[in-house]
Measured scan of single mutants.
Amino acid sequence: IRCIGVSNRDFVEGMSGGTWVDVVLEHGGCVTVMAQDKPTVDIELVTTTVSNMAEVRSYCYEASISDMASDSRCPTQGEAYLDKQSDTQYVCKRTLVDRGWGNGCGLFGKGSLVTCAKFTCSKKMTGKSIQPENLEYRIMLSVHGSQHSGMIVNDTGYETDENRAKVEVTPNSPRAEATLGGFGSLGLDCEPRTGLDFSDLYYLTMNNKHWLVHKEWFHDIPLPWHAGADTGTPHWNNKEALVEFKDAHAKRQTVVVLGSQEGAVHTALAGALEAEMDGAKGKLFSGHLKCRLKMDKLRLKGVSYSLCTAAFTFTKVPAETLHGTVTVEVQYAGTDGPCKIPVQMAVDMQTLTPVGRLITANPVITESTENSKMMLELDPPFGDSYIVIGVGDKKITHHWHRSGSTIGKAFEATVRGAKRMAVLGDTAWDFGSVGGVFNSLGKGIHQIFGAAFKSLFGGMSWFSQILIGTLLVWLGLNTKNGSISLTCLALGGVMIFLSTAVSA
């Protein structure tokens, strides 16, 4: 259960009878995928790494000078000259100064003066180019299975845990398959586009800190620079940016070097996208990844198990997540596992009318040892309800109150669905055939309105939902006002479609 501690969480529900669903994975976010007769899966884009970055340009932001020398000439005696002028490691300046009897010249006039100092770069920052084909995306998957609280967001041991898996995709191999043991396998067909235009970005490294910066900004930095990788004795261009020549006297000129420019660069980098280094690879934390999940090989585990009949206890007080759902960790005293956990939410304890829904599909106890633990997640209705676990006299209950409203949740879900469709863009549509167009249209309606429909009408039977949709269509056909007619027709059509397409 990876997503319960992530604030940016998206719930995606598969269409009834569908074998695939489109998701948008982004750094700092987590996606929970639910479908009829399929286990619930949490998917998170953990890291995006980039390798084989080529150094484009380096800037010196802290330097020192040494070996200063000057040469001067009297008027009419030609130009002052130093051998160091031809050495690229030196920074030199030529000027004219007033000369006369007082400073060793027989004539009054302008004399030539040249001053040089050896330039040494102490600290530099480097910009590297990123090729999209060198990106690698690491995705962690977790099935809502027989897990306890100690396994949440624990990325170790996934090789031997059938509840978890790690997959890596690249532009050259965008397809992967996550093996989930008894739950089958989940196929991923990803489109490795981060949403960032790397043709316009460089990877900047300064003092063990890293950013993504725009090329134009990078090339306009007014500091000494050299092109390409460091060859040991780089040729620094624009050395004068960190060196200041003071007022010249008759035979000498003082040279000083400016202080470190790291603070000024940090100020200019305010708002830039931060990154990290992992050995020789860069780690990015921006952008998104679009994936199509193929769920035809994914299956529920323990459908044929019998119900657990022994007593359950709450190991922890049920807690609310950031998303309005409830996490419950229970301990089973029996030894008759594997068995299914009898769990439901009810409005009252007399009729036990089921409300809400299970995020953890078909929760089971897989071990036959005593005191096995299991964590599950529920989506309670707004208002008061009861969490009921167990059967008969051994069942345990917990009162729950959820604040908020169904309308607010439906609106929030619609906005999130619209954002998801905007990110998917043209990849969500198939114009290759008439059937493809209608299929894409259905998927689009489901992406945007599916979660809201589930919130508003999830407790009704599909037949009642179709009746309401048919009534809206009838009202649309018999209303003389054009805008009201079109609105009723659209709402009725969407409702009829979703009542037959969205899983219960």
Rank of each mutant, 00 (worst) to 15 (best):
R2H: 10
C3K: 06
V6S: 00
S7V: 00
S7G: 12
S7N: 14
N8R: 00
R9A: 10
R9W: 11
E13R: 01
G14A: 10
M15H: 04
S16K: 02
G17K: 06
G17F: 05
G17D: 11
V21K: 02
V21G: 01
D22E: 13
E26G: 12
H27Q: 07
C30P: 01
V31T: 15
A35G: 15
D37H: 03
V41T: 03
E44A: 08
E44C: 06
E44S: 00
T48M: 13
V50I: 07
M53T: 08
A54M: 10
E55W: 01
V56Y: 03
Y61L: 14
Y61I: 10
S64P: 02
S64M: 06
I65Y: 02
S66K: 14
C74Y: 12
Q77T: 01
E79D: 15
A80M: 13
D83F: 00
D83G: 15
Y90G: 08
C92M: 12
K93D: 07
R94F: 08
L96G: 03
V97F: 07
N103D: 11
K110H: 12
G111V: 00
S112Y: 04
C116D: 09
A117M: 10
C121G: 06
K124E: 12
K124S: 12
T126P: 00
E133G: 08
E133F: 09
N134F: 08
E136R: 00
E136L: 06
S142N: 14
H144W: 12
G145H: 06
G150P: 01
I152Q: 10
Y158Q: 01
Y158K: 01
E159L: 15
D161E: 15
N163R: 00
E168W: 11
E168K: 05
P171Q: 03
N172V: 03
P174H: 07
L180H: 08
G181H: 02
G182F: 12
G182N: 13
F183A: 06
G184W: 09
E191Y: 06
P192L: 02
T194D: 00
G195F: 03
D200Q: 01
L201A: 07
Y202M: 13
Y202G: 03
T205L: 00
N207L: 09
H210S: 01
K215M: 09
E216C: 09
W217E: 07
H219R: 10
D220S: 02
I221Y: 03
A229F: 01
T231Y: 04
H235L: 12
W236G: 02
N237F: 04
N238K: 13
N238D: 15
K239Q: 13
E244V: 03
F245V: 03
D247Y: 04
A250M: 10
R252E: 05
T254P: 00
T254W: 06
T254M: 08
V256E: 15
V256C: 03
V257L: 13
L258E: 05
L258T: 05
E262I: 10
G263T: 10
A264N: 11
H266M: 13
H266I: 13
A268K: 12
G271N: 12
L273G: 01
G279M: 09
G282W: 05
L284T: 06
F285A: 04
L289R: 00
L289F: 08
L289H: 05
C291A: 02
L293W: 04
K294T: 02
M295P: 03
M295K: 12
R299N: 05
L300G: 00
K301E: 13
G302S: 13
S304T: 15
C308Y: 09
A310P: 00
A310D: 14
F312A: 05
T313H: 03
T313Q: 13
T313F: 00
V317Q: 08
E320P: 01
L322R: 03
L322W: 07
T325H: 07
V326D: 05
V326Q: 04
V330Y: 09
Y332A: 07
C339D: 08
I341N: 13
A346P: 00
A346G: 15
V347N: 13
D348E: 15
M349E: 15
M349W: 11
M349I: 11
Q350H: 13
P354D: 02
V355N: 00
G356C: 04
R357K: 12
L358C: 12
P363I: 04
V364K: 00
T366I: 05
T366A: 15
E367H: 03
S368I: 08
T369V: 15
N371D: 12
N371W: 03
L378H: 09
P381L: 12
F382D: 06
D384C: 05
S385L: 04
S385D: 13
I387A: 02
I387F: 15
I387P: 00
I389T: 13
I389H: 11
I389C: 14
G390Q: 05
V391R: 15
G392H: 06
H399E: 00
W400Q: 07
R402G: 12
R402E: 04
T406L: 01
T406V: 14
T406G: 00
G408P: 08
A410Y: 11
R416I: 01
G417A: 07
G417L: 02
K419A: 04
A422V: 15
V423R: 00
W429N: 09
W429H: 10
W429F: 04
G432D: 07
G432L: 00
V434I: 14
V434L: 14
V434N: 09
G436C: 00
G436I: 02
G436F: 07
N439V: 11
I445E: 11
Q447N: 10
I448V: 15
I448N: 10
F449D: 13
A451K: 12
A451Q: 00
A451L: 00
A452V: 09
A452N: 11
A452H: 05
F453V: 12
F453E: 11
F457Y: 12
G459D: 05
S461L: 03
W462G: 07
F463A: 05
I466Y: 11
I466K: 05
L467Y: 06
I468T: 13
T470C: 15
L471C: 06
V473Q: 03
L475A: 14
G476K: 06
N478D: 09
N478Y: 09
K480V: 14
S483C: 15
L486D: 06
L486M: 07
T487P: 12
C488I: 15
L489S: 06
A490T: 11
G493E: 04
T500C: 12
A504M: 12
